[in-house]
Every structure is written in structure tokens, then in C-alpha cells.
Design a protein around this nucleic acid. Structure first.
Lengths: 356, 356
DNA sequence: TTGTACGCGTTATCAG
DNA sequence: CTGATAACGCGTACAA
């Protein structure tokens, strides 16, 4: 029950030297005779003593820790991002402290204060932290507060009211790729599924979808407000179809992410429809499981790991005074991953004739 | 580029009071007139000053942080565990610092020293950290070292050479449930797929599998050394079948986890076999995607979140001096989740007659 | 080569 | 109600 809280003073006393000498031995700084060094090391080993990095941090005015604010890691998409950020930081000798946002733990100034008190050396924000509608009013002040105290890099759609270093993927272009892929295969009745108004990255995709459909001269069916999970996809597609007469059912559905696609696929099959013959499905995120759906899921890769690496290295460079601190925005384009869930392997088809 | 490194002294000076008074205002301790408090608060707000928790930590001899050592979070199974641990700690006001083990970052005494230097208030170890063969020789000393400096709770198969508080699931019993389920459905040729010798939790399952098969008087086909990923499952089942004459192919395959099952399912279908009619598949972990495979995957739930909650609360209780520190082991039983990939919905069958 | 003394930023005790 | 002052554990000029 008693854990050794010993200090360099304890070591010094037992070794018969001063604390300064112990410190020198620990930091392997020269200027200490091998004889006393050995004597000191023996005592250090005896207690398996390790110097306190919190005391050192106080002196050096750094915690050697980077904060990562994100909406959790249950979604493997975010797990990938966190892992990349962690590794990149770790490689440079920094620990990462994850802070999770949620409906009940919003990113507001109180939230930000926690990070400031910990004297983190920098913060990375991974999209989603600022998505919900009422986040907006709290998030901007929180980020501006944070930014006054430490370097800040964000990965999410640009935030109104916050000037900061920002990386994000071209979500609208990624939706365009999806829709154009389907259009090229002959699809005209295309639906959009998933997300929730209030979620900014979702809104960007939804709005993008509507604009692109309009640009193509197509009518759009859609079902937002369903969420971002497989269950949401399952329920969402069922509702969407139930609300439409059968002869105007979409022949293809674009989902907000692969998780929603997972649920949609199940429900579509359960209704006796075939994928992609009766209904094509296209996802987003190129998650680890998307090659393993049946049929394999066509999707869009936003290269989250790349973006994370870029962002974290920018942050590290700023912290090392090797890069400037001025706000900028960098956009990353996405890549369409064609598999079989849209019927690309079947070639272009004329869906109008299939309507009964 | 210059971030405000101001202290209570700066605040005190500008407010015309002593640092002690500023501290009192910050901690909202009574004994300070509302007038001066207001005066001080104005200056605090002006600079949005937050007291340094590292200085406080030095004084209080605590970092208010819990370390979590685990093999990463790409596997959603571990993401679930981390999330649970995080939340439980967070609820009690503790931050969690994740340390990731891997082939190149083994848990040895140098690794452990990092945590000790940070003066963490406790450590939770999530299985897998100590799995690889050469971990064993390093991990035991590392854990014993850690344990001398802070409370330690582990979730993994008991570790030879380490006496500590340990929670783990009854892996052998969970394999038994799987095999008996298949046996009850009439399966006699049952294969095991996935894992790697050297991984301790994998070995436990493999050995359990062999023992159980022997107890049932059945011959066992198996393919270890494949790994724990979907790709491993895909390749593993292909190799397993290729090595066997067709009339002695298994009618059912038990995989080490749902990820491996994901790959196995794909490969089995690709070979023109039907699941579960031609070959049953049973996974392990009840991951979020397992209801969405086609057919839905029968699997075993080891209740990782429950175990994590238990373990973290034990750790928190020890840290709060509300629980003892003495080593003990607690085993959690698993639950079979019956879906359709084993053909339970088809009833018992006689597979012998299906052999050509 | 070694020891002394001070600063890092905060909290708590003790006078006043 | 307020202000010195002494820890907390470590690193580093400076002196010996």
C-alpha cells in the first residue's frame, strides 16, 4: 500500500553525496568521477529510483505532452486517426493525452481550461469535436482560448470564428466522385443516407449532394437525421423506401459513411433486393471491413492517416520552433475506391427500363 | 509564437495582492473579502489565467493521471475497452494516458520507467501487452517494477512470475461453448483458425480447443500462426482447406476472433461454399460488425466493457485508499451469441451423409 | 570533481 | 482578511 516516494535527496543522503551529484548522474552529464557515480548508481538501482518528470516539467516549463481532442474512437475511422497521431508524437518523444467530446462533454471554455491547466505543449483537434449545433457557440470561444495558451492544429471543416491551422478533406468533392461514379454507371435515381443536420461535416456532404444532383439535373431523395451507425443505416433505408412508391425507388444510395452502408446493405438484402443489381450502395471512409461486405463495398478514402501525419508534424514543428504559427488551411483530395457494390463490374446500364 | 506563461505572481503583482491571495481566490477558499476577490478575478480573466496543474502536482505528489498499457486500438475490441476505461477514469476526475505496445515497443523495464517518471497514480494493463513470446522475459520484470511504484491492475490471462490484481475472461470455457454449440448442431469435423503461438491469450484458446475436441472424441484440424486480422482469416482458411482432401474438410470453423471470421467468410463464399450449409463459422468478441456479416455471425461475447469497468474501479478504489492492494484474480464467464452463421436456425443435422 | 543556492509555480501554515 | 514563508522534486549556474 505504500509506494516509494523517494527523491534525489533520499538517494543523495544514502550515497553520501549532494542532490546535485545525483542529478548529474541521472542525466549522465560529465564532470562526475566514475567512483562516486558508481556509488550513486548503486543506491538508485537499490530503490529503482526514477526522477520525477513533473518536477522536471516545472523547471523546464513543459509537460512533454500533446492533447488530442476528438469524439472518441469507437468509430474505427477515428481510431485510425488517433493511432497515427499517437505514433507521430511518440516518435518525437511526446506523450498524447486524449480528450473525448460527446453530447454531455462539449468542447467549451471549461473543457479547454483543463488542457491549459495541464500545460500541454500543443493540441490537435480531430473533426467531430465541434460538430453538434450547440457546439458552435461554445467551440469557437474554446478554441480561441486554447490558442492563446498553446499551438493548435485542427482537422475538420473550417470553423467560423476561429483562425487556426486547419487540415481537412474536400468532402464536397468526395461526394461528387461518388455521385458521378453512379451517374456514369447509368444511375439516375440516387438517394443519400445518414448523418444529422447540426453535424457540420455531415451537412457539408448533404449540401454537396443536393448541389451535385441539381447540377446533373436529377431529383434527389434523401434521409438525413438518421445518425452515423449501422443501426442508423438499417433503419434509415427502410424509412426512406417506405416513404416512396416502389416505382420511384432509388437505384443507388450514397451513405454518409461505411458504417451506415453496413446497415443499409443488410436491410436492402432483407427486403429481397440484390446489390448492386436492384440497388447500388456506396460508402465513405474505406474502413477495414469494407472489402469484406457482400458484395465488397465501393467507397471513398479520405486518407485520414495522411492528414493526421501532416497535422501532427506541423504541430511538432511549431513546438520545436521550426515552423511558423500563422493560420492556414490545407485541403486534401479524396480517392474513390471501386469495388463491387455499385456494379462497376457490370458496366453501364439503363435503369429506366427496369422499372415495372 | 509567444504563449502567455504567466503565473500567480504576475496576477498578484498586477492585482496588488500576494500570491497566496490569488491562490485562495482560485481555489475559492473562503477567507478573502469579496472586494479583493473581485479585483483579483478581473486580472485573472484579463489574461484568462489557469493555474498550472504540474506545479500543483509537484506539491500534491500526484499527476491525477492513470496509465493504460495496451496493444493499440485498431482492433475495435480494444477500442471498446479503452473507451470504457477512459470514461470510468474521467468520471472520477482522472485523465488517462495511453501507452501502446507493439513488436518494436515491448513492455520492458525501460518502458515501465516512462510511466514511473511521470508519477502516474495507477496503471491498467489491457491484455495483449504481454503476449509475444519474448515479451514474457521482459514483461514480468517490468510489471514487478511498476508495481513497486504504483497500483497495478491487469486484464489478461494470469502472468507467470507476477503477482497482481488480475481480471480475465474464461477463454477456455468460451471455446468450449463454441465447440459444444457446433457439436450439438451435429458438427464433428471442426477446425480452429487464427492466432499465433506466442500470443498467450491465443494459446489458451488453441490449447482449450484441442482439449475440448479430445474430450468429445473428435479429431481436430487447425491453423494457428495466421494472425488476428481479416486478411489472416482469408488466407488461413484457404491454406487450411488446401492442405486437406475435400472429403475430410471441416464442416465448421471456429475463429480466434470476429476479424478473422470476417476474412474466412469471404474466402469460404469465394470458393463457392454456402454458410452455414456447407460450412459453419463461429467468431469471438461480438464486435459491432458481427450482426452485419452475411449470414450474421454467431460469436462469443467476453464482456470486455464489464471487465474494464470492474478493473478500473478497483484501481480507483485502491488509489483512493478505499480498497486493498493485495493480489487476486477474478474470472468473467463469456456468453454465446447465437446468430445464423452456424445454422442454429436449421436445427441439428447429420453431416456424415453429406460427404460424397 | 563536488556542493551550495536558487528558481520553476503552486499550496498550506502561520503570523499579523 | 491578508501576507510572508516553507515545502514539493529537480536542474543548473556559481562557488569551492
Amino acid at each position: 500500500m505504500q509506494y516509494g516516494k523517494i527523491t534525489i535527496y533520499d538517494i543523495a543522503r544514502e550515497a553520501g553525496v549532494s542532490a546535485a551529484t545525483v542529478s548529474r548522474v541521472l542525466s549522465e552529464s560529465r564532470g562526475v568521477s566514475e567512483k562516486t557515480a558508481k556509488k550513486v548508481r548503486r543506491v538508485i538501482d537499490k530503490y529503482s529510483f526514477k526522477p520525477s518528470s513533473v518536477a522536471r516539467g516545472l523547471y523546464r516549463r513543459t509537460s512533454h505532452t500533446i492533447g488530442i481532442i476528438m469524439p472518441g474512437i469507437e468509430n474505427p475511422y477515428f481510431a485510425t486517426m488517433f493511432t497515427t497521431a499517437y505514433q507521430e508524437a511518440h516518435l518525437n518523444g511526446y506523450a498524447t493525452l486524449m480528450y473525448r467530446t460527446s453530447q454531455t462533454e462539449k468542447l467549451d471554455t471549461a473543457f479547454a481550461s483543463q488542457l491549459i491547466e495541464r500545460r500541454l505543449d500543443g493540441v490537435l483537434i480531430l473533426g467531430g469535436a465541434l460538430e453538434l449545433p450547440d457546439y458552435q457557440e461554445h467551440a469557437a470561444p474554446a478554441l480561441n482560448l486554447l490558442q492563446k495558451h498553446m499551438p493548435l492544429v485542427t482537422i475538420c471543416p473550417p470553423i467560423p470564428g476561429v483562425e487556426c491551422i486547419n487540415f481537412h478533406s474536400n468532402l464536397k468533392a468526395s461526394v461528387r466522385q461518388s455521385v458521378h461514379h453512379l451517374f456514369a454507371l447509368g444511375h439516375k435515381r440516387i438517394a443519400f443516407l445518414g448523418g444529422s443536420t447540426g453535424n457540420r461535416s455531415a451537412s457539408v456532404r448533404e449540401q454537396g449532394f443536393l448541389e451535385i444532383m441539381e447540377g446533373l439535373g436529377l431529383a434527389a431523395a434523401y434521409n438525413y437525421e438518421t445518425g452515423h451507425t449501422p443501426e442508423a443505416g438499417e433503419l434509415g433505408i427502410a424509412k426512406l423506401l417506405a416513404a416512396l412508391p416502389r416505382d420511384s425507388w432509388p437505384t443507388a444510395v450514397v451513405t454518409i459513411n461505411d458504417l451506415v452502408a453496413l446497415g443499409a446493405i443488410r436491410q436492402i438484402k432483407r427486403m429481397g433486393l440484390h446489390i448492386p443489381e436492384d440497388m447500388a450502395v456506396i460508402g465513405c471512409d474505406n474502413q477495414f471491413f469494407s472489402p469484406y461486405t457482400d458484395p465488397p463495398l465501393t467507397t471513398v478514402d479520405n486518407h485520414p492517416a495522411d492528414m493526421c501525419r501532416l497535422a501532427m508534424n506541423q504541430l511538432l514543428a511549431i513546438m520545436a520552433d521550426e515552423a511558423h504559427d500563422r493560420p492556414f488551411t490545407q485541403v486534401r483530395e479524396s480517392t474513390l475506391i471501386v469495388r463491387e457494390s455499385c456494379g462497376a463490374q457490370l458496366g453501364r446500364r439503363d435503369f429506366e427500363e427496369q422499372v415495372e
